[in-house]
Amino acid sequence: MSEILAQIFQIGFFTALIRIATPLIFGTLGELFAERSGVLNLGIEGIMMLAAMTGFSTTYFTGNLWLGVLTAIATGMIAGLLMGLLTVSLGLSQHVSGIGTTLLCSGLSFFFYRLIFKQSSSIPKIVAFKTVPLPLLSKIPVIGPIFFNQFALVYIAIAIVPISAYILYHTPWGLNLRTVGENPLAADSAGVNVHRVRYQALLISGALMGLAGAFLSMAQFNAYTFGVISGRGWVCIALIVFGQWSPWKSAAGAILFAFIDALQLRLQASSLINLPYQIFLMMPFVLTIIGMAIVSRNARAPAALLQPFRKEER
């Protein structure tokens, strides 16, 4: 038994875990900003797909990875604006707007990918991000290789958790954002522009989802495929419920999910359990649903989530 454990929990396992968690952290925090302002951003899956495509394509033609990342961020922000137009300005159903945004963005990503790269037998590839070992820190035994010999985007993801928590809980804007999500009427009476704050939240949301997409097609993998996101966006929405709308707990949820995902990858690769690989792929999704069944009863979403705010209706 201990041999099996030793075989699974090597340093490489934890390095992989952090990498799997990275796009989930970006996506979850992106969704978090939107939801804390009162907007459920179901566009997440499609936005991640489209950003993965635009980021990859930009890098493919310019050879510049960071330009690709910026393009992915911009893509996410434009999609965030679309969500804002539909759900904030027009006050339409957040559920259907989000599904529409996902269908539109995923359709666009397929369309433009095929338009740009045509149908070819070989998959277009880029030279993806390389790991950047941090001086000194990466030399620390065990912790060093796991946390400090990673992609630059991983460091950004790790940094974004405390930054998000700080913005949400320790800045005036964060207070406005939370008030807008809990009680937009009160925020409005206090002179806060509810629509503006929700737009800002959706822009941040889109930017972070863009980073999630960029990480997948430009660091985790070096190509764009139609299955590049395969449900990760939806998982992020579950992780927020799991994390009770807190940035720290949601990020912890992302790590937990990544642990399960890394574990199933290890078990797949090892010959310890002889099951079809799809059963392993399925496992994190099943556990997510079970986890949600356990926590959802006590989950308290932002009070104004799903509620459009129309000033004239006061």
């Binding site: 499609g46 679309l82 539909l86 027009l90 339409l92 159903s93 259907v96 707007s97 599904i99 529409g100 945004t101 996902t102 269908l103 539109l104 963005c105 995923s106 359709g107 666009l108 397929f110 369309f111 095929r114 338009l115």
Partner: peptide
């Protein structure tokens, strides 16, 4: 690209909303 069909679906959902 044949994926125009997917884009039309997404766009139509948004315009209908």
């Amino acid at each position: 690209p044949v994926f125009l069909a997917d884009v039309i679906q997404g766009t139509a959902l948004v315009t209908m909303l």
